[in-house]
């Protein structure tokens, strides 16, 4: 068994995070980590004729550029694992149509980046694949359209609402080479404490994040340099801190959240922070991965969080289920 503790899979062989390629939108480019992204797209259509088509171009270009940058041919890649927020994960599947790689589409809402990296690591450790590309994306306009209201509809965003990140990141996992290694993967349980407010996703996801994080830490007993969650924003982040503090196991000094890293919350008018599949993806690919390479951090616990929210279910009175997946990475 490669399983330790209750829920954690230990990766025994080397699984390197070899490289990343990150594309982000204009607002993300203007944020505090804007200089970490490989490409910044100023226009919300990027030459396409709809936001959905633009989002799939984000994914396609991220994967293609990653392959070109590393001289990877199609035959070198054993598997593409991809996901996004839209119905039928169209951005991923339609991008995969052009990429012509063996493809698994996954849906984990905003938790998709850690989910696909975890799955990729298991595939490589299991000996089924040597090289895996994981890619996820989100686009403010396409997400807003699907989950909320038309963009031209006037209205005020609530203070607890979050801003969907426009961006995509592709990550190359390989069984050979150098770089940070994925060591432990914990797939989370669905945790739902009854939050129904779609304008307060951070609060809906925080219990799931706490559950997966505490499980991962209990299973592995590793002292991490940095723990990041995907897109809890200010509300979810402070609730997670409160929960750990109550267990006398404070992580406050080493804990941050991608949703609060990617935007300047004061100046960029995003209220509680960033969200979306692209949030943890671009922050990992652009920012955290470089910190690992530069050895500014050696042990990173990367946890993407997802609100498995459906507008239909919400209208039917359902609450919002949350999930969080942890990927422990060491340099």
């Amino acid at each position: 068994m490669k399983k330790i503790g209750n829920q954690t899979f230990q990766i025994k062989d080397d699984v390197f995070v070899r490289d990343t390629f990150t594309i982000a939108g204009k607002k993300e480019g203007e944020g505090p980590i804007g200089n970490c992204f490989d490409i910044i797209v100023d226009d919300d259509l990027w030459g396409e004729d709809s936001w959905e088509k633009c989002e799939l171009k984000f994914q396609k270009e991220a994967a293609k550029s990653l392959m070109q940058k590393n001289n990877l041919m199609e035959k070198d890649i054993d598997l593409l694992i991809a996901g996004d927020l839209l119905n039928q994960i169209t951005s991923s599947s339609f991008a995969a149509r052009d990429l012509q790689l063996p493809y698994i589409g996954v849906y984990g809402a905003c938790s998709t980046m850690a989910l696909s990296m975890g799955l990729g690591a298991l595939m490589i450790d299991g000996g089924f694949a040597s090289n895996v590309i994981c890619v996820t994306s989100s686009h403010f306009c396409s997400a807003e359209r699907q989950y909320r209201l038309p963009l031209e509809m006037g209205g005020q965003r609530h203070m607890s609402a979050q801003w969907t990140v426009t961006g995509s990141s592709a990550v190359w996992l390989s069984n050979g080479g150098f770089g940070p290694k994925i060591k432990n993967v914990t797939f989370g349980k669905i945790t739902d404490l009854g939050v129904k407010d779609a304008n307060n996703m951070g609060a809906a996801m925080a219990p799931a994040a706490y559950d997966s994080l505490s499980q991962h830490i209990a299973d592995t007993k590793i002292k991490y340099d940095l723990i990041v969650t995907g897109d809890l924003g200010t509300v979810g982040k402070s609730i997670v801190n409160k929960m750990f503090n109550e267990e006398n196991n404070s992580i406050e000094d080493i804990y941050d959240d991608c949703g609060t890293i990617i935007f300047d919350l004061e100046k960029q008018d995003v209220h509680a922070g960033g969200s979306g599949c692209g949030c943890s993806a671009t922050v990992f690919g652009g920012f955290l991965y470089k910190k690992l390479l530069n050895k500014e951090i050696n042990k990173l616990l990367f946890t993407s969080t997802g609100a498995l929210h459906s507008p239909t279910a919400t209208l039917q009175g359902e609450s919002i289920p949350g999930i969080a997946h942890c990927v422990g990475i060491e340099m």
């Binding site: 005020q156 203070m159 607890s160 559950d211 509300v235 402070s238 609730i239 409160k242």
Partner: peptide, 21 residues
């Protein structure tokens, strides 16, 4: 987890920023 739906509701209310009415 020590929270249930009722006790968590109070936590959420406490931590959710109010709109500037």
């Amino acid at each position: 987890m020590k929270y249930d739906k009722n006790s968590y509701k109070q936590v959420v209310n406490e931590y959710t920023p109010k709109n500037k009415m």
